[in-house]
Design a protein around this nucleic acid. Structure first.
Lengths: 208, 208
DNA sequence: ACAGTAATGTGAAATATTTCACATTACTGT
DNA sequence: ACAGTAATGTGAAATATTTCACATTACTGT
């Protein structure tokens, strides 16, 4: 088993939905509920759970709280994750202000940029010069980073992060970065994602 | 065959790499070259090509220009794609200013927001009030949209877009949107992507 | 001119993922 | 109390994807 990325992603989606459901007072869910919420199937949901030993109630579905705690057990307790962002351009700043992170245990503790006019020690989180990145990572024991720098600077940035002790990154630079095998990279290429949509909406020739 | 999203995505990645390679004067590539560039395997690359009838040269690999034109034939000619963005928050603005789009045939022709202070008819692209979205889509024959509004407004926005004639969206709202079967949605959930990284970098228990 | 070889192209095998089919079980209603 | 049923849980089958293995071929070098 490769503990495939896809399943893990779905588990996170389940958890996300459940947290939202909980916040509006729902106490019980069925595999059906989850399937519909994510556009999947009930069997898929149960299979996913089965693979990770998550169990429910034979007739009554799943108790929301139980399910949530089983998922969180697996996915990691929602402990505060400190992350840094390399690159304080538009994307970096968008992430910096993205509400979604704040409430879910992801804390952006600093941004880094080599443009002096972007540096701002007072802001929250602070935007620091690149020179301080190495030291900052070590001192604050950060192990998760985001690469939001231009593509030509991305590999160099990654190398620096790895050297400093980062264990995994979310990479927005549109190139495939080289890294040690045990290092985890999640690539997101926004343009590609858009192009993919564009491809699928045009009248297809060889579809069946 | 489902013309799987994954393969298409890889084809776009090949094309992206090739364009970059071309810009630095490279004339020939091998399946190996592409494989290494994307962190894949040469067999995978050739298989992908084989599935779509893309051919190269038995001993000399692929002529970059030929390959590019074969890919573009398939993926759509790089024709100008006009898109609109719903939501002019940080994410919307980051996309608006994202260089990557401009040069590759993706043109953001307008943003829409219901916050009057964000509206700015003078900017380029303009930020218009939501009320004008329906009319704008029809008049300009837009068929591709981006949803960058808060999650609670996303479904409503999608419904409006569909009604107006949009054929596919890139959705950043962290919920699964309901749509007709022939409508294409590409979901991106930034927080989930980050959480996935966080999951994979922690010491795994049941990995082999 | 031709032998050697380094590449492609692709069926077949292997592997991974999803879906089916159904046994099991706990709740609900009477 | 118990029959009916609506849910879960999971092997097995089906399907999709990736990798293997190798025949084919065009270039390169002499």
């Amino acid at each position: 088993m490769k503990s495939a990325k896809q399943i893990i992603l779905r588990l996170f989606q389940y958890r996300e939905f459940l947290m939202r459901a909980k916040s509006i007072g729902i106490k019980n869910v069925y595999s059906d509920t989850l399937a519909e919420a994510l556009g999947s199937t009930a069997t898929q949901v149960r299979k996913d759970f089965s693979l990770f030993g998550i169990t429910g109630n034979k007739r009554a579905g799943y108790k929301l709280d139980d399910l949530l705690s089983q998922l969180s057990e697996l996915l990691g307790k929602n402990q505060k994750q400190k992350i840094i962002i390399a690159g304080a351009g538009n994307l970096g700043k968008a992430l910096m202000q993205y509400d979604g992170f704040k409430k879910e245990g992801i804390e952006i503790v600093a941004l880094f940029d080599n443009d002096p006019v972007k540096v701002n020690i007072e802001s929250s989180p602070p935007i620091l010069p690149i020179e301080r990145l190495f030291e900052f990572i070590g001192k604050n024991k950060i192990n998760l980073g985001v690469i939001a720098v231009p593509y030509f600077a991305a590999q160099q940035m990654l190398d620096l992060m790895i050297l400093a002790g980062i264990k995994g990154v979310l990479n927005f630079a549109p190139i495939s970065l080289k890294s040690p095998k045990d290092f985890f990279i999640n690539d997101i290429n926004l343009r590609l994602e858009l192009e993919t949509v564009a491809y699928f909406i045009k009248p297809l020739k060889q579809e069946d």
